[in-house]
């Protein structure tokens, strides 16, 4: 539900504090043929292939969102630092409140994870974008790495304002009858319930290694899930797949659940529990 201004407005009205756009590139891109999304036992598997209308066509969507004063985090993807900086500049001009650099899409050749696994590139791209725009820059990183802390540190060195972790996990589903992978791209990214422990572990590790805020994402369905991420070191969370499991009202529900948990445990301010698991 990050396709256009209309869908993001609905999500905002449903209780989200801000919306992250789909990842936008320089040119329109159709993405992969279907099947691009399927449901598995414990999560959602997708390989969209970064479909997007291109930065020029996205101007109107941001303008529409800003009419309603909705905080917008513009997600962008590119293959080189100058591409990222052009996209970031446009996003800022259009009115985005922050930029998220997608350096973690696990299934698009030449983009995402292929860039985000190289600490030098992560640092270079982050610092180039930082020099281009005034709005905060977040770096979304992948769990499909053995050096996740190193990548997070590289983003911090590039002056990133925040780390977003995690993106989906590389995965595959084979149909037994047809003996073929179900997704058209064969490999996709897994999200939802199953990846929460992985996300929590990544956030915990990153928190041990950087001093910038972390936005936790991956398998958050309930207030307790969010609190687990807070305890691991996240100061905010993103919600995706839970929209399917609990409907558009998921944002309000999670906020209420967090408040109830805090009341029950006599926590006055959320900052009391951020990073609480690091002892």
């Amino acid at each position: 539900m990050d396709e256009d201004a209309g869908s993001m407005t609905r999500i905002f009205k449903a209780g989200a504090g801000a919306v992250v756009t789909k990842s936008i590139g320089l040119k329109p891109r159709e993405g992969y043929p279907n099947p691009t999304i399927i449901e598995l036992e414990c999560g959602i598997l997708n390989a969209m292939g970064l479909p997007n209308p291109g930065i020029d066509n996205f101007k109107d969507e941001i303008a529409e969102l800003k009419k309603s004063k909705i905080p917008v985090i513009g997600s962008i993807f590119g293959s080189k630092s100058d591409e990222f900086s052009k996209l970031a500049k446009n996003m800022e001009e259009y009115g985005a409140d922050a930029i998220e650099l997608n350096m973690s899409c696990p299934h698009a050749k030449g983009y995402g994870l292929e860039i985000g696994s190289d600490p030098k590139l992560v640092k270079e791209i982050t610092s180039t974008v930082k020099k281009t725009v005034k709005i905060p820059v977040f770096v979304k990183i992948s769990p499909n790495l053995i050096n996740i802390s190193e990548i997070a540190k590289a983003a911090e060195k590039g002056k990133a304002d925040s780390i977003v972790a995690i993106n989906t996990i590389k995965a595959m589903k084979i149909d037994l009858e047809l003996k073929t992978p179900v997704l058209a791209n064969k490999v996709g990214g897994y999200s939802g319930d199953a990846i929460k422990p992985i996300g929590v572990r990544c956030v915990y590790e990153i928190a041990d290694n950087v001093n910038i805020p972390i936005i936790g994402v991956g398998g958050i369905h309930t207030g307790k899930d969010a609190i687990e991420y807070f305890m691991a070191g996240a100061t905010a969370v993103q919600i995706g797949s839970a929209l399917y499991y609990r409907g558009a009202k998921v944002f309000k529900k999670i906020c209420n659940e967090i408040e109830n948990w805090m009341k029950y445990h006599n926590v006055k301010n959320i900052s009391e529990i951020i990073g609480a698991a690091h002892k």
Partner: peptide, 14 residues
């Protein structure tokens, strides 16, 4: 199944 938003019309009607 209502997750991706590709088919949205109006204010997020899927």
């Amino acid at each position: 199944f209502g997750l991706c938003g590709q088919c949205c019309v109006g204010e997020g009607l899927r």
